[in-house]
Simulated scan of single mutants.
Amino acid sequence: MDAWDDAFGASPDRDPDFGPDDRSGQPPLTMEERAGVLDDLAELEVFRTLLEPTGVKGIVVDCPDCDEEHHVDWALMQANLRQLLDEGQTGRHEPPFDPDPDDYVSWDYASGYADGVAALAEREEPSGRHGSTGRHARDD
């Protein structure tokens, strides 16, 4: 199970705009699924820390059920993931009214952005060697 599929209703018994219709009978997440959601929560916090100051309001997710993009702000995405951990599924949420698509980025974009920031910081970090330029041997 992918946290994004579950969070945005990628099953026939769910309304794609608002999440699951029925909360009963949902099996708990497996340890592997829980670990994946915890990883997503940690990544989301990094993304928010890096991108929110630039004006990005949240994540855009392509919904396979309705073939539309769902614009989810940082706090709602975090709440969805936490609820997924606690209950094994997410609840109904009102989508934003007339969101500006330029204010949201995909998970892949946010991940690439974070990787770029980390790579730049690694290059700029002094290695502690005398006269070093901070480059790693693998860069030569």
Rank of each mutant, 00 (worst) to 15 (best):
V61A: 09
G36Q: 14
H71M: 11
D73G: 13
E125Y: 01
D65N: 13
H130T: 14
A118R: 06
D100F: 10
Q78T: 14
R23W: 13
V117L: 11
L76F: 00
G91K: 02
P12T: 09
R48M: 09
C63F: 06
E45S: 14
R92K: 13
R92Q: 15
F18I: 05
G131M: 04
A118T: 02
D108G: 02
P126C: 03
S11W: 15
R82D: 12
P96I: 00
E69R: 09
L84Q: 06
V37H: 07
R92L: 09
R123K: 13
R92G: 14
D67G: 07
A10C: 09
P20W: 10
D102V: 01
D103R: 09
D100I: 01
D40R: 09
D86I: 03
G128K: 03
P28C: 02
L51K: 07
P96T: 00
E33P: 02
D6A: 04
S127D: 04
D139Q: 15
G58C: 08
G58E: 04
A119K: 02
D5K: 07
Y113P: 06
V46P: 06
S132P: 02
D65I: 03
W4M: 02
P101F: 08
P96W: 01
E87L: 12
A79D: 14
G88R: 01
I59D: 03
A3S: 11
D86K: 06
A110P: 02
D17A: 02
N80I: 05
T30E: 04
Y109M: 06
D13Q: 05
E122S: 14
H130E: 10
G131C: 03
A121P: 04
Y104P: 02
V56P: 04
A137G: 06
D67A: 10
G55W: 10
R23A: 15
L120R: 14
W4R: 08
R82K: 12
T133L: 04
D22Q: 08
P53Q: 11
H93I: 04
D67R: 11
E32G: 11
S111Y: 12
D100P: 09
